[in-house]
């Protein structure tokens, strides 16, 4: 309970402890704490930045999508137009082809008709001659009556 040299001893150890704490304890621990809080602040700022960038990217995506849609619309419209053109062309071609075939068919029919007519004419002439032979009951010179037969055949 008496004051003695212990006082000085305590004072000295107190000074040494405080000095030690200041130099080797407080500075590193506080430094780490500050660094960590700075890191957290940086992280939060980065997150904010990322959020902002995502917002921008969203806008950009919207824009690109819009452009793409417009472009796609254009392409579809163009394709439709082209398809219509192709159909028209095909129609025109088909029409021409049909016309040509029709003309050819008509010419053939004409030809056939003419040929049939010629054949019929020949046959009729023959029949007329046979008929005339039968009527006259006598031999008729085909050559001598060719003129009459021809004129008959022409009248048919």
């Amino acid at each position: 309970m008496n004051i003695n040299l212990t006082l000085i001893g305590q004072l000295l150890s107190f000074v040494v402890f405080v000095w030690f704490t200041m130099k080797f304890v407080w500075t590193p621990i506080m430094g780490a704490l500050e660094e960590r809080s700075k890191g957290i602040a940086d992280g939060l700022a980065a997150a904010e930045q990322g959020k902002h960038e995502r917002e921008l990217a969203k806008d950009r995506v919207k824009e690109v999508l819009h452009d793409a849609k417009a472009q796609a619309g254009d392409i579809v419209a163009q394709a439709k137009k082209r398809a219509a053109e192709i159909v028209d062309e095909a129609k025109t071609d088909a029409h021409g082809e049909g016309e040509r075939l029709l003309t050819a068919a008509r010419a053939e029919i004409e030809q056939e008709t003419n040929r049939a007519r010629e054949q019929l004419r020949g046959k009729v002439a023959e029949l007329a001659i046979i008929g005339a032979e039968k009527i006259l009951h006598k031999e008729i010179n085909a050559a001598a009556h060719q003129e009459i037969v021809d004129s008959l055949a022409k009248e048919i």
């Binding site: 309970m1 004051i3 003695n4 212990t6 006082l7 000085i8 001893g9 305590q10 004072l11 150890s13 107190f14 000074v15 405080v18």
Partner: peptide, 15 residues
């Protein structure tokens, strides 16, 4: 208990 010795507490207080 060092703090029951006035030398210890006075040492710190004087510091």
């Amino acid at each position: 208990v060092s703090t029951t010795d006035p030398n210890a507490t006075f040492g710190m207080a004087i510091g």
